[in-house]
Design a protein around this nucleic acid. Structure first.
Lengths: 253, 253
DNA sequence: ACAAAAGTGTTTGATATACACCCATGT
DNA sequence: ACATGGGTGTATATCAAACACTTTTGT
């Protein structure tokens, strides 16, 4: 826990450098060994969990702020980020960092301000991430998506909204390039879809549809070493992938 | 144009009551006589056009702020509102109200602040709206969607983004209840879809698909008076409509 | 009677679903 | 040899697109 002196310094610094009343919270999705993971932080002392987040510098574009925040938590540059919602109910900050609530008079205390938070979700390659805690947390770690502890504030809602948005996006955007390693097998990719959607898909139909999108390249190589028949390795065709990101998949009408 | 005194009063009032650095801009869509309309305001003196917008009271939920702002411009309560994006580049406010830029020192001037703006789009029944200007505008009026003048700031981008979002939503949500009068004919509803999508649709396929959604009730009545064969009148089945809003239409996977 | 708008229906192709068969590999 | 996972193929249903015919109404 921060001392009163540290808190005071933080608040002065924050007021000087950050936009008031605005924060950013990120839901970082990773995929590893067949399960979806989310990056969470654990608070000092209290031990409560929360999503990686931060503030926007006074002259910084918000996308850049989200990138900066995530670079600090993951070590990664150029993360795939998608803004998905602003959470702006005044009550949402009520219990925010309440452990620091009484340490400073309200006028000086950055954390008793009201904050609107801009939600971003990020898709990253699990293996590339080096989780690093921030100054309020003891640890930053991956957590199984279907086993997330209760989160501080409205972070549980933010996570749920991010996941819902991701599921919708799945229907008209290619997803996977940012979550999968460079090479992967079709069953591995299917597992990704299955964990995001939380339901089983038909192996053969999945493959036909996926190939139909035209965003995959099949390698000559096979994934050797596993038991059973060796599956083909695929990678994304970046040109078509990017085009599909812009165009979208279907959309009927 | 506001006098220096008026401006000063406005700024003091704003700083006291509104959250700093946050604004709301609304794209209000209406539908009338076969064309889409957007609500725009015209600035005093300069004559430039911009979207209806405003700020968030210090203890007000953002949805409520959007509703309040639109109530002032349209006279309507309970508007269908959809948050769609935050525009947060620092340069976006550069030319904001620059006519007022030099009238007050920067520290006192609310309008030289940087603002992130939360974009909402609204769908309203054209006939219910009573357009009312705000204190910076001489007029508030409907404008043909395919004939919108250049807008101040990034409002042209905001409008375009709203329209793109609406088009996407069309694919997995029912749209129409908020834009159409209580009773309407199938060709009228089709015209709405055609103007939003900016393309012609097949009469017969449109009808089949629309009815397939199960959100329409056909009245016994016909629309009399027009030339040619009298079309049936329809209204939305609110129960199914709301269910479809939550469920969404398809979504494959 | 006829032009124009509206209601209804059919044919066709594409896409999704459900399922069956074969192949490769480690035990 | 066999269980398991993976590659490939086919029949069927469902849905979208294209198109034709009939009905009503005002002139």
């Amino acid at each position: 826990m921060l001392t009163k002196k540290e808190l005071k310094e933080y608040c002065i610094d924050a007021r000087e450098n950050y936009l008031a009343h605005i924060s950013i919270d990120c839901v970082v999705f990773g995929f590893h060994e067949g399960t979806m993971k989310v990056l969470v932080l654990q608070m000092k002392d209290e031990g409560e969990w929360y999503l990686p987040g931060g503030f926007v510098l006074k002259n910084e574009p918000i996308e850049m702020a989200a990138n900066r925040i995530l670079k600090e938590r993951t070590g990664l540059d150029e993360i795939f980020l998608q803004q998905f919602h602003v959470f702006g109910h005044p009550d949402r900050s009520k219990e925010h960092f309440d452990m620091y609530k009484d340490m400073l008079p309200e006028k000086e205390n950055w954390f008793t301000n009201r904050f609107l938070t801009i939600g971003y979700y990020a898709l990253v390659d699990f293996c590339d991430v080096n989780p690093a805690p921030d100054q309020f947390s003891t640890s930053c770690a991956w957590c199984d998506l279907n086993n997330v502890p209760p989160l501080k504030l409205d972070h549980t809602l933010i996570l749920k909204t991010a996941l819902d948005t991701l599921r919708v996006h799945l229907n008209y955007q290619p997803i996977g390039y940012n979550l999968m390693p460079g090479e992967f097998t079709m069953p591995e990719l299917q597992k990704l879809y299955e964990t995001i959607l939380d339901k089983k898909l038909d192996r053969r139909n999945f493959q036909r549809r996926m190939l139909g999108f035209g965003i995959l390249k099949r390698s000559e190589q096979l994934r050797k070493g596993g038991a059973h028949k060796a599956p083909y390795l695929y990678s994304f065709d970046l040109e078509n992938y990017r085009a599909a990101l812009i165009e979208g998949f279907k959309g009927s009408w």
